[in-house]
Design a protein around this nucleic acid. Structure first.
Ligand SMILES: NC(=O)c1ccc[n+]([C@@H]2O[C@H](COP(=O)([O-])OP(=O)(O)OC[C@H]3O[C@@H](n4cnc5c(N)ncnc54)[C@H](O)[C@@H]3O)[C@@H](O)[C@H]2O)c1
Ligand SMILES: NC(=O)c1ccc[n+]([C@@H]2O[C@H](COP(=O)([O-])OP(=O)(O)OC[C@H]3O[C@@H](n4cnc5c(N)ncnc54)[C@H](O)[C@@H]3O)[C@@H](O)[C@H]2O)c1
Lengths: 234, 234
DNA sequence: AATATATTGTGAAATCCATCACAAAATATT
DNA sequence: AATATTTTGTGATGGATTTCACAATATATT
């Protein structure tokens, strides 16, 4: 980069140039992870009839630092008014746009078991930018049914169908032992991003985006902190 | 702290003094979050018949920095051999001990719906240190049944039962609108750590440990990175 | 036995992220 | 109209985490 990122952003604001991949990448991952938390908080706040909100208040309610909230929100391009704060509707839109959650992406889900069907039943995914359009399984008893209007198809058809339908997102809820093979079939079908619920690290080409929904990670923090706090009172 | 942490740990090793809350706290949270990833990787590696493993190899497979892996593992107290690496069995045990996953903790789960039942059916939780011993719901049709040997009870009984059974961990899989009230009932029952799947920030006393299993967070990273990579090829 | 090699363990440096401090701006109050 | 108050936006600072650099060590090779 030859010019400073700050200068770049200024230029973008003035001339409405589309941000490039370079700039898109520049948000710190911790900030990115906080954006959905703000979003959910703001949607709640909107329901109470509020129209404006300050980072002072957001930070108090979410137990964060106000400057941190301001800097996080700034990544989405939002501009506030001193002494007032931000317009809630505009702010919500700004975050959703930034996350690309205003454009629903179609997704395939492999593994129509307990977790897979629970995910399918979770209507709120449409709020999070994705829509599950087909399930795939290798169990004959599950195939060729429809669940909540979504067809369950044989996993062999997944790759070709993904290609034909230009699907970019795959969700894996098969047992760990099948996860690698299913992931490879997804990649063969042109899928670019995989949300993996199986407790198994996938080995895939570098350019494939893999987000592991590791329940174990979450539990590690929980059980460890609990052990700490129980030790403390001993 | 008057003496260096390093000195402390040495003393602990020599005299087998229990680590105190002070020392327990000292692991960086990013390191803590990586431990379950190593654990799962190591369990896989063990199944292939390996008995020793180096951080060089772990790092290559998990796409991490070898020094980082070494420092992370060191928090669990493991000691390796130059030129060889670590004994896999001992290393696995060391991580499990550190996370307290060798002592199963009983947990209550509120919300016997899609996700709650999927979680119940997930036997591997016993590998992650917890055991769901009772479900609670407010839907008469679900109450007083047993699911996989675990009773479904009316949510009104949760607090008193938690107290009586000295339950420390609660899992919330009720709709967002009921999450706060259910969480408060858990706290009233003496529960100290809550694993919250409802997309709702809970307002609870500071000493209560809350770990939000935010699906939205995971998806934000996925959809954002995907948007970036699609921009790139434009 | 001497040398080469791969790895651990750890201070030091670099990078990344969170927090502090404060000027500028918008509104409310006197 | 002047002053006080609250908040935004941001450069500077501090702290946490990652990465680098390298000595020490265990084993393999000659
Ligand atoms: N259930 C949970 O709460 C939970 C939580 C965290 C992680 N997970 C993980 O999610 C995955 C699914 O868990 P689950 O409880 O839903 O298991 P499940 O057994 O209920 O479902 C797995 C489904 O995958 C199908 N399947 C198996 N191999 C396949 C293949 N090669 N191609 C296509 N489909 C295939 C099976 O027929 C079944 O329908 C597992 O990896 C599990 O470890 C589950
Ligand atoms: N299903 C998913 O894949 C998924 C994913 C992420 C998050 N979530 C969240 O998890 C929660 C549960 O989702 P779900 O799909 O299982 O919903 P669900 O409607 O299938 O289950 C909710 C259960 O909670 C019970 N319940 C409602 N109010 C209660 C109360 N006050 N006390 C006790 N029980 C009560 C209901 O009777 C029902 O059995 C929701 O907050 C949802 O947003 C679900």
């Amino acid at each position: 980069m030859t010019s400073s990122p700050h200068f770049h952003i200024l230029i973008e604001k003035i001339f409405s140039i589309n941000v490039t991949a370079e700039e898109l990448k520049s948000i710190p991952e911790p900030s990115l992870r906080r954006l959905p938390v703000y979003l959910q908080y703001l949607q709640n706040a909107r329901e109470t009839g509020k129209t404006e909100i300050s980072t002072t208040l957001i930070a108090r309610d979410l137990r964060l630092d106000p400057t941190q909230v301001r800097k996080d929100l700034a990544y989405t391009g939002i501009i506030g008014k001193p002494k007032i704060g931000y317009n809630i509707d505009i702010l919500i839109n700004s975050i959703e746009d930034y996350l690309n959650w205003n454009n629903l992406s179609d997704a395939f889900l492999a593994g129509a078991g307990n977790l897979g069907l629970a995910l399918l039943g979770f209507e709120q995914f449409t709020k999070y930018g994705i829509k599950i359009v087909a399930l795939f399984d290798n169990d004959g008893r599950k195939i060729d049914r429809e669940v909540k209007g979504v067809p369950v198809l044989p996993v062999e058809k997944m790759a070709s169908l993904a290609k034909r339908m230009h699907i970019h997102i795959g969700i894996i809820t098969v047992p760990a032992s099948s996860a690698q093979s299913v992931a490879e079939q997804m990649v063969a079908g042109g899928i670019k991003a995989i949300w993996n619920f199986a407790p198994k690290m996938l080995k895939l080409p570098e350019e494939i985006i893999v987000e592991n929904a590791q329940f174990a990670t979450s539990l590690a923090v929980l059980t460890r902190k609990l052990a700490e706090s129980l030790k403390m009172v001993e």
